[in-house]
């Protein structure tokens, strides 16, 4: 991997072609919906045998390759408990390139919380152009289903987000979790300008302008 240290100083306006680009994605949603398991599955390729409550913010990353370009995908896995969000998690919204909202298909409450999570994002002033996706997790638990695809799809449509239903646990869906994050990565890669390096000292969210207008509806949150 190319060293990026010597390049970080020249990051005003242009992006260095040699630097491994970083896609920073924040994963949010109620406690227990499976955020830790999903991020773990994407980064480690398997369902963790023992997860624990996430305290504050956990970080996982994975290097992927798209069209021959190596890209570092950084997943920021956040604590779901309300009290951590106000004063603790703020810092991690900075420079975020995409947001993954997660609910649990067997838990209607977690679905009903989504507007509050969307509102949290809005309060952190994420730009419209920051892609958002909705993930319904635990689809392996067919019997306990509480949130049907239709109602979830309707919600996703109303917020202009694509919906994915998956399971972090079910091995059959192994590719699916991977595919979801890869979809986000592809989306980010297609966006211009490609200013996806973290600039030290930059306090705001980096602007990622859309490349294709027709994408707008299904990727940016209309809130």
């Amino acid at each position: 991997m190319e060293s990026s240290l010597e390049l970080t100083t020249s990051l005003t306006g242009t992006y260095p072609p040699l630097r491994t680009r970083i896609f920073k994605i924040i994963v949010i949603g109620d406690s227990g919906v499976g955020k830790t398991c999903l991020t773990y599955r994407f980064c480690a390729g398997k369902f963790p045998d023992k997860t624990e409550a996430t305290i504050g913010v956990d970080f996982r990353e994975k290097v992927i390759e798209i069209d021959g370009e190596k890209i570092k995908v950084q997943l920021w896995d956040t604590a779901g408990q309300e009290r951590f969000r106000k004063s603790m998690v703020q810092h991690y919204y900075r420079n975020v390139h995409a947001v993954v909202f997660v609910y649990d298909v067997t838990n209607a409450t977690s679905f009903r919380s989504l507007p509050a999570w969307i509102e949290e994002c809005r309060q952190h002033s994420l730009g419209q152009e920051v892609p958002r996706i909705l993930v319904g997790n635990k689809c392996d638990l067919r019997h306990g289903l509480q949130v049907g695809t239709e109602v979830a799809q309707k919600f996703a449509d109303s917020h202009s987000m694509p919906l994915f239903e998956t399971s972090a646990k079910n091995p059959d869906d192994n590719d699916h979790v991977e595919a979801i994050f890869m979809t986000v990565a592809h989306k980010l890669k297609s966006q211009k300008p490609l200013m996806l390096s973290q600039v030290p000292g930059d306090g705001g969210v980096l602007p990622l302008r859309k490349s294709e207008d027709e994408d707008e509806k299904s990727w940016s949150c209309g809130c």
Partner: peptide, 13 residues
């Protein structure tokens, strides 16, 4: 460590 938030956070945590 690389001097950015993710790397240092990752290392220390």
């Amino acid at each position: 460590c690389e001097c950015d938030m993710a790397s240092v956070h990752h290392l220390l945590s």
